[in-house]
């Protein structure tokens, strides 16, 4: 603690506070930015089995376009980093219902975010192909 105070004092006195965020000659800038890690598991509401192949989107950021931030693996797990915002809208979408069963899209909005890591365990409703085409949406 004492060490850090002295360091900051000397850095401040020499107007070198930016030196705490130095970069090497041939390296990148430092990464002092804020982001958030979203992770979790997607299971079927019907039988509790993990659901593979669900695309996870951050839908309030146009930035990503049509690209998903993650796709759930064979254990239903997904994870990704995204920008820390005051709210984050996450969409879980089955874009290929013929592959691993047919599941309804689910949307959720995260607000009042005070952490850099959020666990999202998601249950998706399984529907038949016809219902899926109607585009049902459930929200939590």
């Amino acid at each position: 603690m004492k060490k850090n105070r002295l360091r900051k004092f000397l850095g401040g006195l020499s107007f070198a506070t930016l030196l705490f965020a130095f970069q090497a000659c041939y390296g990148t800038p430092q990464d002092d930015g804020l982001d958030i890690y979203l992770y979790g598991k997607i299971v079927s509401k019907t039988n509790g089995e993990p659901v593979q192949g669900i695309n996870v989107f951050v839908s309030n950021l146009d930035y990503y376009g049509t690209l998903p931030c993650a796709v759930s693996d064979e254990d239903g797990n997904f994870s990704f980093f995204t920008v820390l915002n005051d709210h984050i809208a996450v969409r879980f979408e089955d874009i290929n219902p013929l592959e691993y069963g047919h599941f309804l899209q689910k949307d959720t909005v995260l607000t009042n975010i005070y952490t850099t890591k959020i666990l999202l365990n998601i249950e998706l409703e399984e529907v038949d192909a016809l219902d899926h085409k109607k585009g049902g949406v459930s929200a939590i």
Partner: peptide, 12 residues
Amino acid sequence: IALLNAGMGALT
């Protein structure tokens, strides 16, 4: 996008 999702925070 893939690298951002993997937590890349700095780039040159």
